[in-house]
Simulated scan of single mutants.
Amino acid sequence: MPETFVDLGFVTAPSGVVVLGMATWIDYWRELGDPLPVRAAAAAKTGGGHLRDEECEAVAVPAAADRPLAVRATTEPSAFDEEPTIATLEIALGLPWPEGAEGPVLLGDLPVDRSGMVVGDAVGLDAWTSLDDEPADGLADLSYWGRYQQEVHERFGGERMPSYEGDGGPYGWLDLPVAEAVALEAEISAWRGGLPGRGVATMVEKHVDYFTFRRAGLHHPLHVGAIEVGGCQVLGIDWCQGDHAVRHHGGRDWGQAFPVTLEADGAGGTVLRWTIPPYGEDEDEGDA
């Protein structure tokens, strides 16, 4: 039975190297030695390879630098809630499949990052901003929720925030200047001190890349969001936290890392594929 793919968008790779990596650690490579572009370029020169240093993991491969690279996926029902979740992620590399070459070519394997996965240009991703960085636009979102959120709403206002579930997200404000968001959070925190149990939580989320890709994917059924990083279009894939807890929580330490291959696309081109078997299959194989 032929696979049914869902188009997720595209990435650009002007450096000629595409990376699929873990969102939590994509900016941490430089802290461990050579930055991501150097490591990725070295892997791409050999035809592609798996990169790993402490918690950082990624796969890097050569790709066409002069065109958008389509990204698509097949899906399986989640073991958590039976909603669609990614089973196969495929990135068109814009390069011909070598004549006479046999495939697929195994490059390594990757676990699913609890904070999602990132596909993009190796050089562009070196500009990725994370939680400790400051946002380029100087803005942040502030949200609050909890037992006494209605009392906070009556006192401070705010609107329902977007969420993966659609309606019913926390209250808060979008696109505030960072200083204003921090000051308002402090004001709410000081005021809630008189509430029994202090039953309100608050969060300031600066518009760094780690946050904006997740916000961009809020209304996508597979939580995929496109953002610009380092002048390149990048796709971020947030992961349902329930699905991750049921299916991927153990990560590599529990054998939950999945094969990444180079394959022919059937039309003379080359694709990068990350294949996550249906829930239970990899566990059964591990017990065999």
Rank of each mutant, 00 (worst) to 15 (best):
G9A: 10
F10P: 14
P14E: 11
G16H: 09
V17W: 01
W29Y: 10
D34I: 08
P35A: 09
V38F: 12
G47V: 09
G49S: 12
H50R: 15
R52M: 02
E55Y: 00
E55D: 11
C56Y: 04
A63M: 05
P68V: 12
T74I: 15
A92G: 13
L93R: 15
L93H: 10
W97V: 03
E102Y: 03
G103A: 14
P104K: 11
L106M: 05
P111F: 02
S115D: 10
G116P: 01
M117E: 02
G120E: 08
L125A: 03
T129I: 03
D141P: 09
Y144C: 12
W145Q: 14
G146T: 15
Y148C: 06
E151V: 07
E151C: 04
H153W: 06
E154T: 12
R155S: 13
G158M: 04
P162L: 02
S163D: 14
Y171S: 07
V178F: 00
A186R: 10
E187D: 14
I188T: 11
I188F: 03
A190G: 09
R192Q: 07
L195D: 05
M203L: 10
M203H: 13
V204T: 02
T212G: 04
R214A: 11
R214V: 12
H223P: 00
V224E: 02
E228N: 11
I237T: 01
W239I: 07
D243L: 04
R247V: 02
G255Y: 04
E263N: 14
D265G: 09
G266W: 11
T270V: 03
I276P: 00
I276D: 01
Y279R: 04
